[in-house]
Amino acid sequence: MMSDAAIARIEEICKEYPNRKSALVPALYVAQREYGGWLPREALREVAEELDLPDSHVYAVASFYSMFFLKPVGQNIIQVCTTSPCELRGARDAVECFKKRLGVGVGETTADGQFTLMEVECLAACDRAPMAQINEDYYLDIDETRANEIVDALSRGEKPPYAEFEKNLGGSHPIAFSDEELGIDVSGIMPAEPVVKKEKPAEAPADAAAKA
């Protein structure tokens, strides 16, 4: 069941649109956060009921978008961009670094339920390839040292620090600001207010998630 705070948040989102259906994608984010990072059928049914939509419609929408997970995922999601502009600059090596370090393949979750490794398509950060989206944030210029640093920090429950920006040699870049610089807490930003902190996956990760 979603918390009262989550339901209240969904109601607030509904006010932004002339009809409740438009709030579906933002509401699914709220639900996904509530359910520990993925959307079990129960969550979809709750959203459907809340927004007065057919279950089938909610399922159709949730399954369309790549950021909604219909199977359990790890607590941390590492998504390496491997589209051509990134691949040309070594994205494949970055994937291998994470695979080696985590001991899982692409699309798999570690046995302890901590990490899911994925390949994704262009994240509009091709200038700083190889790069990855890790949870809510982008990490740039990833090499083996950096990949290990990131995994180490996440394993300790910390947010990995950003690399220094000074590798920038010219032009201008969409840079990675730290939350402190922005004065905000980005974890939980989607779709606006933090509702609850992410918890461990709701289901036993070992076999359910091993080959998600």
Binding site: C126, D127, S172
Partner: peptide, 12 residues
């Protein structure tokens, strides 16, 4: 937006 095999990828 310049990407790929260049010395200074970035926005110009």
């Amino acid at each position: 937006s310049v990407s790929g095999h260049v010395n200074r990828p970035g926005n110009y």
